[in-house]
Design a protein around this nucleic acid. Structure first.
Lengths: 118, 118
DNA sequence: CCATCATATTCCCATATGGGAATACGTCAA
DNA sequence: TTGACGTATTCCCATATGGGAATATGATGG
């Protein structure tokens, strides 16, 4: 079995830096493709491709206005991710404490083995 | 310029389903590789590879105990992600309202153009 | 209809990647 | 040291992808 398809998965969509950049720009409101491309310093085709992915996972919404297509943010798809990641919140500090304890243990052992240190 | 390297990026690390599975299993405490592999139903080499990625982005920490290597969760790297995603929280409900409003507008226009509908 | 502007697609290329299989390493017990 | 067990690596393959260039599509103004 080859690589598992990660596209069409929101986690994968936001794994791309440029796409995250697009989402951030859209916080300021709807924007046409060319403007997004310029602000990100990437060619228009690239922007369109990234927008397509974001559209597929429904993180953006399009609206046609004349020859332009205004892309707008639809952040609802980010909530599940926020919740998933938030499920680890209780471990953030704990992780630190645990590592800290571990370091202390190492120091103690080090003291026993090399009383001269420090 | 070819594909941009997304590895060694936490966002990319958690974009892989199996890796997310590993992180969840580790919530219950340290686990040796083989056990993680079995619980996920994947071969040991696969588990080792995913663990390597998680190690590179420092989402897990290893501890050698005999011939085993106990992997433990180090969730600190998830906090930045939680914050980034959380930066869109104010748009979750707003996105819904905005779309809802948009749908209402469409309905209204539809009414004008096709009074017979409905 | 024609020219132009704004976008989306398609082709091609180089590379990152996940999975499978085989194998190399490291550690421990006998 | 040898054998067994637990892990990590390496090789190979098929595919997903991002970027660049060129081109197709769509809509608008003459």
């Amino acid at each position: 079995m080859p690589r598992a398809a990660t596209t069409s998965d929101t986690f994968n969509a936001i794994a791309e830096p440029q796409r995250r950049g697009i989402l951030e720009l859209l916080k300021n409101g709807e924007r046409p493709v060319l403007e997004l491309a310029k602000e990100l310093g990437i060619p228009q085709p690239s922007a369109s491709k990234h927008l397509r992915v974001l559209r597929e996972v429904q993180l953006v919404q399009v609206r046609e206005v004349g020859k332009q297509r205004l892309y707008g943010l639809d952040a609802r798809g980010l909530q599940p991710i926020h919740e998933w990641v938030g499920g680890f919140a209780e471990f953030w500090n704990e992780s630190f404490d645990r590592l800290n304890t571990y370091v202390q243990e190492l120091k103690s052992e080090s003291q026993k083995e090399n009383p001269d240190d420090n």
